[in-house]
């Protein structure tokens, strides 16, 4: 029941953002609100097993969403900018030394691993290729290995980022 309600509320809030400014009850018109309620209930009925698959309701706390916005606007954006300038340099000069490395991480929950994998894909010259579901190890394709790095067996997740400690932020948000 709780997953159903949370999914419905999530879908309805997206609907509210998308239809803002259509009428005069607050910002919305009455038919839009009625259609939104009906559609979000139907959506929640269909997808209630997907959003809360691991029975983990930590993200229902609005403070975590606020922290996530801060994370995206602050350290994550800095890292993305740096990674893009780095890849731009590699595109222009063609100096690459790619390889797939193994990264171990302390994050436990599914959401934490998901956010870490997405952050790794978008930030520091790396792409997540595969995830070991049992040990939560990530296999990461890195575009420029420093000479000597290929001999290390595993990397710690915070070694990949240089400007900000993104795994610590993710632990604060998701765990």
């Amino acid at each position: 029941m709780l997953p159903f309600l949370l999914t419905a509320i999530f879908a309805f809030s997206i609907w509210l953002v998308l239809t803002a400014g259509t009428g005069d009850i607050g910002l919305w018109s009455a038919p839009e609100l009625a259609a939104g309620v009906a559609l979000s209930l139907v959506t929640a009925g269909i997808t209630r097993t997907f959003l809360c698959r691991s029975r983990n309701f930590r993200m229902a706390n609005p403070a975590r969403w606020l922290l996530m916005c801060l994370y995206i606007l602050g350290p994550f954006f800095l890292e993305v900018t740096r990674a893009n300038l780095d890849v731009a340099y590699r595109v222009i000069t063609g100096r690459i030394r790619p390889g797939i490395i193994r990264v171990s991480s302390d994050l436990k929950t599914d959401l934490g691993i998901f956010m870490l994998a997405n952050s790794i894909t978008l930030t520091p010259g790396t792409i997540t290729v595969d995830i070991d579901e049992a040990t939560h190890d990530l296999y990461v394709h890195k575009i420029n290995l420093v000479p000597g790095e290929e001999k290390r067996e595993t990397f710690q997740d915070s070694d990949l980022f240089s400007l900000a400690n993104l795994p610590a932020w993710i632990r604060r948000i998701a765990e």
Binding site: P98, I100, R102, Y139
Partner: peptide, 14 residues
């Protein structure tokens, strides 16, 4: 497989 590649830790794991 990644063609110019220094190391591939994933090879053989899958």
């Amino acid at each position: 497989m990644p063609e110019p590649s220094v190391v591939d830790r994933l090879e053989g794991v899958l």
